[in-house]
Amino acid sequence: MSLAVHVAQPTSADMGTDAVLRAAGVGTGDEVVVPTYGNVEVAAAVVSAGAVPVFADIEPSTYCLDPDAVAAVVNSRTAAVVAVHRFGHQADMGRLRALGQRHGLLVLEQGEPAMGADGQARRQAHAAYLSGRLRGVVTPSGGAGHTFQQYVVRVPGNGRPDRDAFARAVRGRGVDCRVPVKTPVHRTSDFWRDVVLPETERAADETLALPVDASMSRRDLQRVVSACNALGGLLQPAF
């Protein structure tokens, strides 16, 4: 039977995930399934525990591990799965725990820093305002329980140069924005894998985090909308 454990956001690879893995007996010769869209420290924690990180693809709507993709890489060496909640989206823990029970896997989840109720409510309200007015970008799906730790849109086009050009233009109009994941973990030098993870790579090419801080005023939000919508003709969706 699997063991489901919630692991708070670790501050380093030697705190949190690797300690839980070791305590559960996961180590040399074992494989641990992890996402590669962000969080290099999760893969590092698996290595620190003596195991091998195995990368699975994400769900495009939540940016969290896709249970079907996890199931596809599980084998006799798989000992655990580490799901990471992303941007305020929750991973599908119900399906991941069921998968763990079927295969006898340890199932861990890594959360995000908690916000106060007031701050969360303001972020959700700001996100609703942006989603109702932005044009030319794909706004995040709300979904049940989305806390909008980050407000991440997709810039349609043909890959990273389009998203990056859009980001530069938005910054030029005085709006702060950032690329949440520049390079997937499986494309970094320390964890390079010759694997095909299309949703992960597409997300890394297209995603852009726009400001949605609880402290923002309505004028701040209007500035974000104006800056982005003024660039709506910059890019054409790829079909």
Rank of each mutant, 00 (worst) to 15 (best):
T147D: 02
V74P: 02
G88S: 04
S141M: 08
V137P: 00
Y129S: 03
A167G: 10
V224R: 05
R135I: 12
P35K: 06
N158D: 15
G88T: 00
S131F: 10
Y129P: 02
D18Q: 11
V185G: 09
V175A: 05
F191L: 03
P10E: 07
A98Q: 13
V138F: 08
T188C: 06
A69H: 12
V20G: 04
A125Q: 15
L221G: 00
C228G: 02
A51Q: 02
V185F: 06
Q90P: 00
G233P: 02
L234R: 07
A204P: 01
Q236I: 06
Y151I: 02
T17W: 12
Y129G: 03
R135S: 06
G145N: 14
V185T: 15
F239L: 13
C177G: 12
V179W: 14
E31V: 10
A49F: 15
T28L: 13
M115W: 13
T147I: 05
R160L: 14
A128L: 08
A71H: 00
A169G: 07
R86C: 06
H186V: 04
A45K: 10
A51P: 04
D14Q: 04
N229W: 00
R122I: 04
T78I: 13
S2M: 14
R171V: 02
H126G: 08
W192A: 12
S226C: 05
T188P: 01
K182L: 12
Q9Y: 11
V54M: 09
V137Y: 05
H126L: 08
R193S: 06
Q120G: 09
V137L: 07
G100C: 04
E112P: 01
N229K: 01
L108W: 09
A167W: 11
G159H: 14
L21D: 07
G132M: 11
V7E: 09
L208H: 03
D194F: 06
G50P: 03
P60N: 03
R95Q: 13
H103V: 08
D30E: 03
V46Y: 08
R163V: 07
A56D: 07
A72Y: 08
M1K: 10
V52L: 13
R219Q: 15
P67L: 11
S189V: 13
T62C: 10
D118H: 14
P10R: 08
N75Q: 10
H126F: 09
V52P: 00
R219P: 01
D164V: 11
V185I: 10
A227R: 02
A98D: 09
C64W: 02
A69W: 10
F55G: 03
V138Q: 13
L96F: 07
V84W: 12
V47A: 15
C64T: 08
E112R: 15
A56M: 03
V46W: 03
T28P: 01
R193I: 03
H85N: 15
V81E: 05
G38Q: 03
E41K: 08
V32D: 05
M216D: 02
M1R: 08
T62D: 06
R154P: 00
R86K: 14
E199T: 02
V74W: 13
R133H: 12
D118Q: 14
A23C: 06
E59I: 07
T28A: 12
D162Q: 12
L106I: 09
R135K: 14
G38H: 01
G174E: 15
V20R: 05
V20E: 11
E206F: 00
V20T: 07
M1Q: 10
S12C: 11
A91W: 15
V175N: 05
D213L: 08
G142A: 12
